[in-house]
C-alpha cells in the first residue's frame, strides 16, 4: 500500500516544479539574450528600418536592449555611460511612461519624474501634436550638482545624477538650477490624506538607489529634492527602466552609450539627434530623435 500523500509532500512537489520552471525560463531567457548579444549590431539601413519598426518588432528591440544591458553590467561601473533616447515621431502621448514611473518609484502626489509635454503645432486645418517625454537629462555637465551646499547630489561614474536623501537639507537650490524643471520637491503629501486613512499601495516600499524606503511622515525622501534615476535599482538587476518597458509606441530606448555595439550608441550617431537646450552646455545624456 502506498504511503498517503501529505500536505508537506504537495508543497515540496509544487516548489520543485516551480524551481524547475524558473530555471528553464531563465535558461531560455539567457540563451535569447546571449544570441541577441552575439547578433550583428550594425545592421544595414534596410534591416535597421525593419528592426526599428515598432511595435511589431518590440520584443526584438527589448531583447536587444536587455542584451546591451547585461553586457554593460559586466563592465566596471566607471566604464558604463547610461543614456536614453526618445523618438518623438513615435511617441503617442499616452503618458504610460509617466504613470509607470510613478508606480515603480512609489511617487507621492506632486512629485513627477517624467511628464510628457504636449505641444500643438500649426493652425487649423494644418495641426499636429508633438510629444516630449521629459525625464532627468542626466547631464554630463549638470548645473544642479555644483550648487548643492552639502554635496548631496553628484554625477555618478555611470552618468546618472544621484541624490543622497539622508544628507539633502531640502534647500531646493538644485531645483532652481535645473534648466529642465526636472527636479521636484517632496512636500510629504499622500494620495489619501493622513496616516490613518493611508492605503496599502502608499505603504509599499520604494527601491530608489537600491534603498528600501517605506513612506513615513517627515522621513526622507519627504523634504528632499527628487528626480528620475533612470530606474537604477532596476538597471542594476538587469531590468530596463520602467518607462522603456511600458512605452506602447516603442519610442524610448536605453543603454550604455559607451558600448559601440549597443542600440543606444547606434541611435546616438544618427543625424536626426537633438538635445534639449544644448546651447547651455549641459551635455544631456538624454537625446531625442526627430
Amino acid at each position: 500500500m502506498s504511503n498517503p500523500v501529505t500536505r508537506a509532500d504537495v508543497l515540496r512537489g509544487t516548489a520543485a516544479a516551480a524551481a524547475t520552471a524558473f530555471v528553464a525560463i531563465e535558461a531560455i531567457r539567457n540563451s535569447v539574450t546571449a544570441r541577441a548579444a552575439e547578433a550583428p549590431t550594425a545592421p544595414d539601413a534596410r534591416s535597421y528600418r525593419k528592426e526599428i519598426r515598432w511595435p511589431k518588432n518590440k520584443v526584438g528591440l527589448l531583447e536587444r536592449m536587455h542584451a546591451d544591458l547585461e553586457r554593460a553590467l559586466k563592465k566596471p561601473v566607471e566604464e558604463r555611460h547610461w543614456s536614453m533616447a526618445i523618438d518623438r515621431r513615435k511617441c503617442v502621448g499616452c503618458d504610460a511612461c509617466t504613470v509607470s514611473c510613478i508606480a515603480e518609484n512609489k511617487l507621492p502626489p506632486e512629485v513627477v519624474y517624467r511628464p510628457v509635454i504636449k505641444e500643438e503645432i500649426g493652425t487649423y486645418p494644418n495641426v499636429s501634436y508633438r510629444f516630449t517625454p521629459r525625464p532627468c537629462m542626466q547631464c554630463d555637465n549638470p548645473p544642479c550638482t555644483p550648487v548643492c551646499p552639502v554635496n548631496a547630489t553628484w554625477k555618478r561614474p555611470d552618468g546618472v545624477v544621484a541624490i543622497n536623501y539622508d544628507r539633502c537639507i531640502g534647500c531646493r537650490y538644485c531645483i532652481t538650477a535645473c534648466p529642465y524643471n526636472a527636479r521636484t520637491f517632496d512636500f510629504g503629501e499622500n494620495y489619501t490624506g493622513d496616516q490613518n486613512t493611508r492605503q496599502p499601495y502608499e505603504e509599499a516600499p520604494s527601491f530608489e538607489y537600491g534603498q528600501r524606503r517605506v513612506r513615513e511622515d517627515d522621513a526622507s525622501p519627504v523634504g528632499n529634492a527628487r528626480k528620475c534615476t533612470f530606474c537604477l535599482h532596476r538597471v542594476h538587476v538587469g531590468m530596463l527602466p520602467s518607462c522603456v518597458t511600458t512605452c506602447i509606441g516603442g519610442a524610448t530606448y536605453f543603454g550604455d552609450v559607451s558600448d559601440p555595439k549597443s542600440l543606444i550608441a547606434e541611435l546616438a550617431g544618427r543625424p536626426n539627434v537633438t538635445r534639449l537646450k544644448e546651447e547651455l552646455g549641459t551635455k544631456p545624456s538624454v537625446f531625442y530623435l526627430d
Binding site: P109, V112, P115, I117, K118, E119, N181, F187
Partner: peptide, 14 residues
C-alpha cells in the same frame, strides 16, 4: 523652463 511643461502633468504644486 520648457514650453508646454505647465500642462504636462497638472497638479497644484506643479
Amino acid at each position: 523652463q520648457l514650453k508646454g511643461l505647465e500642462n504636462a502633468y497638472i497638479r497644484s504644486r506643479l
